[in-house]
Measured scan of single mutants.
Amino acid sequence: HNLTITQGKLFFHYNPKLCLSEIHKMEEVSGTKGRQERNDIALKTNGDQASCENELLKFSYIRTSFDKILLRWEPYWPPDFRDLLGFMLFYKEAPYQNVTEFDGQDACGSNSWTVVDIDPPLRSNDPKSQNHPGWLMRGLKPWTQYAIFVKTLVTFSDERRTYGAKSDIIYVQTDATNPSVPLDPISVSNSSSQIILKWKPPSDPNGNITHYLVFWERQAEDSELFELDYCLKGLKLPSRTWSPPFESEDSQKHNQSEYEDSAGECCSCPKTDSQILKELEESSFRKTFEDYLHNVVFVPRKTSSGTGAEDPRPSRKRRSLGDVGNVTVAVPTVAAFPNTSSTSVPTSPEEHRPFEKVVNKESLVISGLRHFTGYRIELQACNQDTPEERCSVAAYVSARTMPEAKADDIVGPVTHEIFENNVVHLMWQEPKEPNGLIVLYEVSYRRYGDEELHLCVSRKHFALERGCRLRGLSPGNYSVRIRATSLAGNGSWTEPTYFYVTDYLDVPSNIA
């Protein structure tokens, strides 16, 4: 807008934040220059609390790290170098490059900038070799853009010569660093050979998330399962459950009422301010606690030095998902009996873990797994792929695949051998790939016309006998059925096997 004052003059007093240069501009645009008398524009009460600059400061050096910015700028000295009290560095987070010096300023003089007072450097006698002032900004957020400017702080001049310097606002972004852990990993099994893994992005990506790394490792069953005799009275049979499938998407929606109208769909109840505040506090606490764990609990591995020492970490090797089922080394339970199943799973520490690289999504279907087997899954978020990966501390989750139908069934015939004193040795093959492992066998036998009897055969007993022995049988026709019990439950009964026990007292003698 054009402003013209045809008559009258300007009068400025007691404006401590208004620089004289701005008042002189007002004289020019209003056409009143030359009308004012000496005392109409006070030299001592206008701009006496402001830094009124008329020179431009330029930054000469900028260096960044993930949490620091090192700045240096060209030296500046007023005509009387004693008038320079120091520099004021202003900075704040700036997602967009549209910041002005006066953003967030209120009537009390406060604003949204963080201000650092910096002492002037030592003055050199040689004007050509003056030290460049600077400042190291610490405690910054990774991968965050900051708006920065600097200006001088000078003393009051009796001659009211307006001098000083100020830089333009520059924008500097800190470097990326390792992201925080992925949030809320959930693993479920939808079949006997697959596990579905879902997660949420890290709360602090500290860069642009480029991919996720998912490692999985087959877990050995508890050692007590191999040692305890679950045929003993009072000892509860062990059981394991597989990871249940995901709930429906509708039930997972946030901010939804727990109660549904019987007449149909209901609208979600909005969260109160107290609920939102509580969630923010919980989120802040979780982030602080995660940072504490990362800094205190997890110790970084030592990389190899120039002395030739090897990095103890196993090298990563990509495998196809079809090879995942046989990740671990199978060892027989008892070496003397080769027909026992290889369900003991000690994992070799030198073995390469299978892994998958996930790009542009937060889910993965891990296939080719062994049925009813526990897996430990390790999830890392990465925001750099080359020249070397920059990934987060791992988040861990466990899951067990679903049982395989008929995996616990005894394959092959049940054979028998009759000894003296009416002892019958029953023999059968253990299931080759049971659900988890076989903890015991149930032997059901009966003599024709009598009630059915049951015998429990422990895992250890089966390994020693290759089956079991029935003792003290009365003469007669017998039928026997056997079924295995694994961590997933009972298998199917075998087809009945028949044998006849004679009275050993009636056996004919070869003595003449």
Score class of each variant (00 low, 15 high):
R400H: 09
T502H: 13
V359K: 07
M427Y: 11
L440P: 00
G412D: 09
H416R: 10
R370S: 13
L470P: 01
S367H: 04
D311R: 05
W216V: 06
N208Q: 05
P387G: 15
V297A: 06
G368C: 09
V299S: 03
N208A: 06
M427E: 15
Y445D: 00
I209S: 11
H425N: 07
A394D: 12
D261H: 15
H371S: 10
E356L: 06
H211A: 05
R483G: 02
H461S: 10
I418N: 12
R319D: 04
Q256A: 14
S203C: 15
T210Q: 02
L505R: 06
G322M: 10
G449S: 08
L455N: 13
V359L: 09
A309H: 04
A263R: 14
N326S: 11
P475M: 08
D261P: 10
V331K: 15
T288L: 12
R240T: 04
G467A: 08
S398D: 04
K357H: 04
R218D: 05
A336F: 15
A399R: 02
C269T: 05
G306C: 05
G374C: 03
E279T: 05
E260M: 13
K302P: 09
N477P: 09
V480T: 12
Q219R: 15
E388V: 09
L277M: 15
S474L: 12
N339C: 10
D408N: 13
S248W: 13
T347P: 08
D261K: 03
K357W: 03
F499T: 01
E362K: 11
E356C: 08
V327C: 03
E350I: 08
E282L: 07
Q256V: 10
D409F: 11
Y230L: 12
S342I: 04
N208E: 14
D222N: 10
Q256D: 11
V299Y: 14
N360A: 14
E265V: 09
E279V: 09
T241K: 13
S283R: 13
P205C: 05
M402S: 11
S305Y: 10
C456A: 01
D506P: 11
C468Q: 04
D409P: 05
H416S: 10
H254L: 12
A336P: 13
H416D: 15
T415Q: 12
Y292E: 02
V296C: 15
R483V: 05
S305G: 02
T347C: 06
T328Y: 10
A405L: 12
R319I: 06
T288S: 04
E351Y: 02
S251E: 14
L293P: 01
P245A: 12
T307V: 07
V359M: 14
E452V: 10
N383I: 07
H461P: 06
L470R: 01
P338H: 09
G368A: 10
P205D: 03
E247T: 09
A463V: 10
Y445L: 04
Y259A: 05
P312M: 09
R313M: 05
H425L: 09
A399C: 04
T340A: 07
S348R: 12
G476A: 03
E258M: 13
V296L: 04
R390Q: 13
V443F: 01
G476K: 00
E217L: 02
T343F: 13
K361E: 09
R400I: 06
D506Y: 10
H425V: 15
K406F: 13
S320Q: 10
E465P: 03
Y498K: 14
K278V: 04
L364S: 06
S341A: 09
F372H: 05
R316L: 12
P403D: 02
E221K: 14
S283M: 04
P300F: 06
R447G: 02
E404Y: 14
E258R: 14
H371Q: 12
Y230W: 13
G476Y: 00
H211G: 11
G449F: 10
D450S: 10
L280E: 15
V424P: 08
P244F: 12
E290P: 02
E388M: 05
R316H: 06
E356T: 12
T494Q: 03
L464M: 11
E356A: 09
V443D: 01
K357L: 09
E451H: 02
S458Q: 10
E227K: 05
R353T: 06
F419M: 15
I438E: 02
A336K: 06
S474F: 14
S320D: 11
I438M: 13
C267T: 02
S262F: 14
S479H: 10
P238I: 05
T241R: 11
P270T: 15
F285A: 04
K236D: 02
K432G: 04
R481M: 06
G234D: 03
E310W: 15
S363C: 14
L440W: 15
Q219H: 11
G322W: 12
W493V: 06
Y375G: 02
L321R: 07
S257A: 06
V414Y: 02
A220P: 06
S305N: 06
S444Q: 07
N339K: 10
E224Y: 12
S223N: 13
D408A: 04
E452Y: 06
S243L: 12
R301Q: 14
F355V: 09
I377A: 15
A263T: 09
Y396I: 02
P475C: 08
K287Q: 03
V507L: 02
L293R: 02
C266F: 05
Q384H: 15
C266W: 11
L426D: 01
A336S: 12
T343W: 04
V214C: 01
G368S: 09
L505S: 10
Y498N: 15
W216T: 12
L225G: 03
G436N: 05
T307K: 04
K432T: 06
I482F: 09
N421M: 09
R301W: 07
P496M: 06
N421Y: 08
A484L: 12
T343M: 09
T340S: 11
A335N: 09
D385L: 08
V297T: 02
D222K: 14
N206Q: 02
S486D: 02
F372S: 05
T494M: 15
E260T: 11
V480I: 15
W242H: 13
A405P: 03
V397T: 02
S398L: 05
E221F: 13
R447A: 11
P354N: 12
E224I: 03
I209R: 14
H454Y: 14
H352Q: 10
F246W: 09
P387Q: 10
R400P: 02
N490W: 15
V397R: 14
P270L: 04
T343R: 11
S479A: 14
F298E: 02
Q252E: 08
G476C: 00
E279P: 03
D506W: 12
S268F: 14
S203R: 07
P244M: 14
G449T: 15
C231T: 01
S479Q: 12
S486N: 02
D291N: 15
Y230E: 03
R353F: 04
S283L: 12
K357Q: 12
L440V: 05
T497W: 13
T401P: 09
S274A: 15
S392W: 00
S444H: 13
T241S: 06
L473G: 02
A399G: 12
E265L: 09
V365R: 05
R400Y: 05
I377S: 05
G325I: 09
D291Q: 02
L379P: 02
V443K: 01
Y504N: 07
P349Y: 04
K278W: 10
R316T: 08
C269N: 15
H425Y: 10
Y500V: 11
K302F: 14
D222Q: 15
F246G: 13
R400W: 03
S248L: 12
R459S: 13
R376Q: 04
S257I: 05
E388Y: 15
P300S: 10
D222W: 14
F499G: 15
N208R: 04
V214E: 00
D450P: 15
F499R: 01
V359N: 08
P346S: 14
H454S: 02
E290M: 02
T272F: 06
E290V: 02
G472M: 05
P332Q: 06
E221H: 05
L369F: 09
L470F: 06
N435H: 11
V397H: 15
C391K: 05
Y504F: 03
N421R: 12
Y259S: 10
I418R: 11
L505E: 09
T272W: 09
S262R: 13
R481Q: 12
S268C: 05
D291T: 02
Y500F: 09
A330K: 15
A399E: 04
A484M: 10
T415Y: 09
S203N: 13
G264P: 06
T307E: 14
L321I: 14
L426I: 01
E310H: 05
E420W: 15
R240I: 07
E258L: 06
A463G: 12
E389Y: 11
T502L: 12
G472S: 07
L440R: 09
A394S: 09
S304Q: 09
N421C: 11
F226E: 08
P403Q: 02
S341M: 14
L225R: 11
F215E: 04
E495C: 13
T333G: 15
S283A: 14
R471G: 09
E290Y: 02
T307R: 13
N255Q: 09
V423D: 06
P312K: 03
D222Y: 04
T494I: 09
V480M: 12
K317I: 12
R286H: 05
P434C: 07
V345G: 08
V324A: 09
R483C: 02
F337H: 10
